[in-house]
Amino acid sequence: MSDPTEPAKPAHAGTPTLRDLRGLTQARIALGAHGAGLPTGAALAFGLDHARAREAVWTPLDAAAIRAALRAQGLESVEVRSAVSDRTEYLRRPDRGRSLAPESATVLDGHGPGFDVAIVIADGLSATAVALNAVPAATALAARVRRAGWSLAPVVVASQGRVAIGDPIGARLGAR
């Protein structure tokens, strides 16, 4: 058995091998083998990555913390929910994560006649990623929107929301 840490030798000059491709992707390729299974390091790395993914999917969005951070950056915000009742339904019924809950739809009414831009922060499949990145991204985007002279709707923080929940939110806010 060859050592996966050794540099790969192409079968034909100029033809990349699987090990050559390891540096080009995060995919799990050319991990090696130990009997019928994976080497211990590869199996442990997979287990850790799987646990991180499950945590990202099941960690709830802390909408209050995001709204407080937006407020600290001088951004007005509102909170809404999708038509999903819980995380299990969110995972099983993507269509409901794309729609606003009826009570949330009315929250958006009355925020003005329309805006050039609406920013929607939805938890999607990783509230962890949203917690780390949404406020800095929204702050940077809002600054560019203001420099361009465009009107900005209150930032909408949507729990249990899929990407397409931005469509009914934008429509309710009259975003252009």
Rank of each mutant, 00 (worst) to 15 (best):
M1T: 12
M1Q: 15
S2R: 13
S2E: 14
D3C: 14
P4N: 10
T5R: 13
E6M: 15
E6L: 13
A8P: 03
A8M: 06
K9A: 13
A11L: 13
A13M: 10
A13V: 13
G14C: 08
T15F: 12
T17P: 01
T17C: 09
L18S: 10
L18K: 04
R19C: 07
D20V: 06
D20Q: 12
L21I: 12
L21R: 12
L24T: 09
Q26C: 10
A27W: 08
A27G: 09
A27S: 10
A27Q: 12
I29Q: 10
A33Y: 15
H34F: 12
G35F: 08
G35S: 06
G35Y: 05
A36Q: 11
G37H: 08
L38D: 05
L38Y: 11
P39V: 07
G41A: 14
L44A: 11
A45R: 15
G47F: 03
L48Y: 09
L48W: 08
D49L: 06
D49W: 04
D49T: 07
H50E: 14
A51V: 11
R52G: 01
A53I: 04
A53D: 12
R54S: 09
V57E: 13
W58S: 15
P60M: 07
P60T: 08
A63W: 03
A64E: 11
A65L: 11
I66F: 01
I66V: 12
A68W: 03
A68D: 14
A68V: 02
L70D: 01
R71L: 10
A72K: 14
Q73L: 04
Q73H: 13
Q73S: 11
Q73Y: 00
G74C: 06
L75A: 07
L75D: 03
S77Q: 03
S77P: 03
V78W: 01
V80K: 00
A83H: 02
V84E: 01
V84I: 11
D86Y: 06
D86N: 12
R87H: 06
Y90W: 14
Y90D: 06
Y90H: 09
R92L: 14
R92T: 09
R92S: 13
R93Y: 08
P94R: 11
D95A: 08
R96S: 08
R96M: 14
R98V: 04
E103C: 05
A105V: 07
T106H: 10
T106V: 14
T106S: 09
V107P: 06
V107K: 05
L108N: 00
L108C: 06
G110T: 07
H111F: 10
H111W: 09
F115H: 15
D116H: 07
V117F: 07
I119W: 00
V120I: 15
V120S: 02
I121C: 04
D123F: 01
D123A: 04
D123M: 02
G124S: 02
G124M: 02
L125H: 03
L125Y: 01
A127C: 03
T128M: 08
V130I: 15
V130Q: 03
L132W: 09
A134S: 14
A134M: 03
P136D: 07
P136N: 09
A137T: 11
A138H: 00
A140M: 06
A143E: 14
A143Q: 15
S151V: 04
L152W: 05
A153L: 05
V155A: 07
S159G: 15
S159I: 04
A164L: 13
I165N: 01
I165F: 05
G166P: 05
P168K: 02
G170S: 12
A171R: 14
R172H: 10
L173S: 02
G174D: 09
A175E: 03
